[in-house]
Simulated scan of single mutants.
Amino acid sequence: MTEQEYFTVHHQLTINAQPLADDFIFPSSAQFEAEIPAPFVVASEFSQLDMLNDSARKELNNSDFKHVINLLDTQNSKLNLLLTFLLSQQDDPQYRSTTVAFGASQCSYLSATPLNNEQALRVKLFLEHPAAAIYCYARVIGCEAHEQGYLITAKYQMLRDADQDLLIKAALYQQQKLLRQRSIDRENNQ
Rank of each mutant, 00 (worst) to 15 (best):
L86N: 15
D50E: 14
K78W: 12
N16D: 15
Q18H: 08
N70V: 02
V68E: 02
P27T: 10
L87W: 09
N70R: 10
E33H: 09
Q31K: 09
Q90C: 12
S88P: 05
L72A: 08
L60H: 03
L82Q: 09
T84N: 07
F32A: 08
A56N: 00
E45F: 10
Q31Y: 02
I69C: 00
D64V: 05
N53T: 00
S55A: 05
N53R: 01
H10E: 15
D73G: 04
F7Q: 15
T84F: 06
D64Q: 09
H67Q: 13
T8G: 14
L71I: 10
L87P: 06
Q89Y: 13
F26P: 08
D73Y: 01
E35Q: 15
L71R: 14
I69N: 00
D91V: 13
I25Q: 12
S77V: 00
F65H: 09
L87V: 11
A30C: 05
A30W: 07
A30N: 12
P39R: 05
Q31W: 03
E45G: 04
I69K: 00
N62S: 13
K66S: 13
D50I: 04
S88E: 14
P93H: 01
S88Q: 12
F85N: 13
Q48H: 01
I25N: 10
K58A: 14
